[in-house]
Design a protein around this nucleic acid. Structure first.
Lengths: 217, 217
DNA sequence: CATGTAACAATGAAAGTCAAGTTGTAAAGT
DNA sequence: ACTTTACAACTTGACTTTCATTGTTACATG
């Protein structure tokens, strides 16, 4: 576990570009690995346990994932890809920029706040994951910012929104930071769990972020 | 170091209510203790070192702070009090709600992002402090939220602002989360370091938070 | 009267040692 | 294509020992 996949740049790009599991056994292994990680965390995560779960020899795992790193890496990439493609689908389904933003954000919160592995690690192995989400989250935030900004720019490009480029990056970063904050510290008075509350939140604080119409200008 | 002062409720209230150091020696001890913590962190923080720094016997320290906890506690309370009173002064000096919000927030960011001990601990002893700022930051955020909300309510009470109570809490929490995020992950594209940039940020994203005039209502 | 010295038991952290578990590779078997 | 077995290198955990620190006390000093 020396290579630290999270510190890397263009994390999201790698997640989307990483080749999909062709083999069906690869799929089963990764499924078992995910369950294993969800049930026991990463500190006690052994290839042996994964093999037992897949009902396969330990050596077989090594045939598909020569190093432990690569398995874990593939796991994270798969989860990230799953997340990103789902969000993209949600966003694509909405017609207006406002709706895309609101629904996309709500989905992100639901997905991440309900992510078993993520929450498991936050709870039982914070020292493993917290630095990546805080003091070393510079690249993560940058990646998330770029991704969100991309979506906003798409709206601008489609003529449904008019927003200066610098403001796009700022708005994107503020959104990214708020999401991360709500994931790592779920306690909140923000009504993120009721549909009406979320709608209200979005209207009050989210929509203004990407609105061309500004006060005082 | 068993008592964990940060987990406590109404942290800010305790910080402001805690009695000021009457003695001059108390002051010197705490000054030395702060420097010691800034230079060596909390893990290697010993009463012996503090005593050497004050050029005083170890026993003397114990006369003023019977337990190590109490010294550290007093330290944190003093820093927190220093912070809060300064912010309050900054806010009080501004005439309009918008200016109070903007200048207050800018000061918070500058103070916290420049705080030697805080940054030292984040850098060298994250496992000690990160959980308090993340997974267990519920009470911290609640305290900060209440404090900020108090300031906003004061403006509402003075008739300079009209904002529903629920919205006050939400706006306050969003501000608190953003500040915390920018403190623990300083890397940002937000122009927080140039005066013009900060002003622009405030106008774009901050002022709308407390503005009665809303889009779509 | 506030501080210093010296001595002390109790607690805690750090370092070292050893046994067990885990990783990653290879060869031969089904 | 997978399994079994075997193996060396490395990591981890448990344990013990040692040392530093805490917190307390009695007495000395100026």
């Amino acid at each position: 576990m020396r290579g630290d996949t999270l510190d890397d740049d263009n994390l999201l790009k790698r997640a989307l570009d990483s080749e999909l599991p062709d083999d069906e056994t690869t799929e089963r292994i990764m499924g078992a690995a995910l369950q294993q990680a969800e049930d026991f965390g990463l500190r006690r995560f052994t290839i042996d346990d994964v093999a037992r779960r897949v009902r396969v020899s330990r050596v077989t795992i090594y045939r598909y994932f020569p190093k432990k790193d690569q398995l874990l890496n593939a796991l994270l990439m798969r989860e990230l890809r799953r997340f990103l493609t789902k969000v993209d689908a949600v966003i694509a389904a909405e017609p207006t920029p406002e709706a895309k933003l609101v629904e996309g954000l709500i989905f992100c919160l639901d997905f991440l706040r309900g992510h078993r592995l993520l929450n498991r690690l936050l709870r039982t192995e914070p020292e493993l994951i917290l630095p990546h989400l805080t003091t070393r989250a510079g690249t993560l935030i940058a990646a998330a910012r770029a991704w969100i900004a991309g979506h906003i720019r798409a709206e601008v490009g489609a003529g449904r929104l008019a927003l200066p480029d610098e403001d796009i990056e700022c708005a994107a970063e503020l959104i990214a930071r708020t999401v991360i904050s709500l994931v790592i510290t779920p306690d909140t008075v923000l009504p993120v769990d009721s549909p009406e509350g979320r709608r209200r939140l979005a209207d009050l604080y989210l929509t203004p972020l990407v609105q061309t119409l500004r006060p005082k200008t």
